[in-house]
Amino acid sequence: MPTVSMTVNGKQVSGEVEGRTLLVEFLRENLRLTGTHVGCDTSQCGACVVHIDGNSAKSCSMLAIQANGTKVTTIEGLANGDELHPMQAAFKEHHGLQCGFCTPGMVMSAVDLVKKKPKASEHEIREWLEGNICRCTGYHNIVKAIQHAQQTM
């Protein structure tokens, strides 16, 4: 079986995978990083969003081996010890979650947005979230949280 190695949340990790092992399976099952969720498993919902070399990607739609040699950041890698990342703090402050299932993907996608378009308008924020589905339909507070994080990140 092929071996993959990558940097996940700043730590060098490696493991044996099958060619068909998805990145999200490697993160959740091999590394036990279960903050990254699998919602739809058909590339639509975005609960599985992580960063690959700084760009958000759906970890259910890529192979673990495609991430070989990359730097991966998951939701577990955002906080600095007990101190929440500004985006996480903003989601908490603005009640940007209800059941919380979509939240890891929402936060990871939102961090990518604020890095790439720091001054995104409300409309641009909503467009950016096209790939993240919240089944509690709590979008208003998610958008408010992201607007808050635009000031604090």
Binding site: I52, S61, S109, W128, E130, N132
Partner: peptide, 9 residues
């Protein structure tokens, strides 16, 4: 095309 994550890959 698609969404930001699709466009990144």
């Amino acid at each position: 095309i698609g969404d930001p994550q699709v466009r990144n890959r």
